[in-house]
Amino acid sequence: MTKRSHISLSVNGDEYECLCEPDQSLVDVLRNELELTGTKEGCSTGDCGACSIRLDGDLVCSCLVLAVEAEGKEIETIEGMTPKSDELHPLQRHFLEINGLQCGICTPGILVAAKALLEKNPDPTETEIRFWLAGNLCRCTGYDKIIRSVQAAAEEMRKG
């Protein structure tokens, strides 16, 4: 038996503790130990972006982070995007209104990534959105309505 490591981490402001294997990825721990399944795992190799989260504010693929590295870190996932369930983030709202999602498996990762973009660049061009989201594969939408949803949310957020 391998010795499992104890980690404590903050996810969306809540403190969690768990035991994990030394080579276990953060997405695995989020999903399978903490049962926070909003973060998706489409490839485990950094290619699809479905596992996008914020790690101390940085946008990263949680499949490329070791769970043990998360010790003492602040993590933000899709579950933290809506602090109150009756108040959606503008991105969430526009994804719903413009139909920026079809099957929805890519959606949590895309929302987390888009939120990071808009914090950094409140007025991105279409090209900037497309390149920022290049790490988030979507096979359903052809990206058109995803880009438009982000644009609409950005516009609304700029107006404040």
């Binding site: 950094g46 972006g49 790690l55 940085d58 946008l59 693929c61 490329l64 790490g135």
Partner: peptide
């Protein structure tokens, strides 16, 4: 190198 997410690390 990779995506924004990959370059985050």
């Amino acid at each position: 190198i990779g995506s924004i997410q990959v370059k985050g690390r």
